[in-house]
Design a protein around this nucleic acid. Sequence first.
DNA 1: CCGGATGGAGAACGATCGTTCTCCACTGTA
DNA 2: TACAGTGGAGAACGATCGTTCTCCATCCGG
Lengths: 187, 187
Amino acid sequence: MDHAEAETRLLDAAEGLFYERGIQAVGMDQVRAASGLSLKRLYRLFPAKSELVKACLDRRDRRWRARLAAAVGERPEGDERVLAVYDWLHAWFTEPDFRGCAFVNAYGELGAVDPAVADAVRAHKRAFRAYMAELVTAAGHPEALTGPLVLLAEGAMTAAAISGSPEAAREARRGAERLLGAAAGRS
Amino acid sequence: MDHAEAETRLLDAAEGLFYERGIQAVGMDQVRAASGLSLKRLYRLFPAKSELVKACLDRRDRRWRARLAAAVGERPEGDERVLAVYDWLHAWFTEPDFRGCAFVNAYGELGAVDPAVADAVRAHKRAFRAYMAELVTAAGHPEALTGPLVLLAEGAMTAAAISGSPEAAREARRGAERLLGAAAGRS
DNA sequence: CCGGATGGAGAACGATCGTTCTCCACTGTA
DNA sequence: TACAGTGGAGAACGATCGTTCTCCATCCGG
C-alpha cells in the first residue's frame, strides 16, 4: 500500500468515525483499526490527532462543496439553481448515515477549545455563503436575499439532523421559493 | 448553604462551563471548583456527570423558552409576535458569552453517544417549533409557514455562533418579514 | 546465507478524567 | 470534656486516551 492509498484509507476511516460518533468519542486506536494501518504509520502521516481532524475537515469541505456544485450545475441557470441547493440537501439528509453538518458538530464540540477547528468551520461556512451569493445574483436577485436563503439551508441541516427526518429540506425549499418570488418553483 | 442553593450553584457553574467550553472538555473537578461545592456533595446531588448534563439541559430548556416567551409577550398580537422572535435572537446573539445553541452543540458532541442528550435536544427543538406554530397561526397565517420560519431561526443561531456576529438575526428577520408578506415588518 | 533496514503488532507510558475513599475539623449534646 | 455524626478537602483508584517505544518478522543487497 503506497503513501497516497494509506492516506486515503486513513482519512476515510477517521472522517467516517468522527462524523458518526463525534471526534472526542473516537480514539486513535479505533481509527487505526478502521483504517487497517499501523499506529506507527498513522502517526507518520499525521503527527497528532488534531492534525488528522483538520485534514478530515479540509477534505470534507472540498468534497461537500464539489458535490453541491455538481448537483446545482445540472440545472438551468436562474432560480432553478438556487432551489437545487435544497433538493440536494434533501438527498443528503436521506443518506442513511446522515448526522447533520460535520462542521457544525465539530464547532460545537471543539470550536471553543481548538482554534484550528474553529477556523476550518468558519472558512467552510464562508465559502458556502459566497457560493449561494453567486447563485442568487446570477439569478438576477438582489444579494440581500443571500442571507435568508443561507439561513434556511443552515437551519435545515440541523433540524434534519435532530429530527431525523429530511423533511426540513422540503420546508426550506418552500421558504426559498417564497423568498425568490415563487416564480420558478416547482412544488 | 441549603440543598436548593447548592443545587442552583452547581447547575449555574456546570451549565456555564459546559456551554463555554463544551461538555467533554470540562472535568468534574472544574465544576466543583466553579460551584464552590465539595466533590462529595456534588455527587450526592447528581450521582453521575451524565445526570448533571441532563439536568443542565432541562433547566436551560425551561429558562430559554421562558425568556423567549416573555420577550414575545410584550409585543402586540399578530405578525409582531412572530418577528419578536428574531429580535430576541438578536439580543441573545449580542450577549458576550453567546456561543450558539447549547442544544445543537450538545447534540453534535454527544447526540450519537448519549441517548438522554439526544432526547433532551429533540424535545427542546420540538417545543420551540410548537411555540412558533402557535405564533404563526395566532397571527392568521397558514401553519405551513412555521417550517421555514423555524429554519430561519435555527439557521441564525448556528450562523451567528460560527461567524461571531449577531447579524444573522437581522437577516432572519428580513426573511421572515418577506415570508409573512412584508405587511407588519419594521425595517 | 547474512546483516541491516523497514514496518507492523501491540505493550508501555504519562496524563487526564469520572468516581470513590480516607482523614480530619467541626458541630451539637450531655 | 467526651463523643457520635456530618461534611469538606483532596488523595486515591481504575479506566481511557494520545503518543511513543519495544520487539520481531520480513525483505533486500552482497
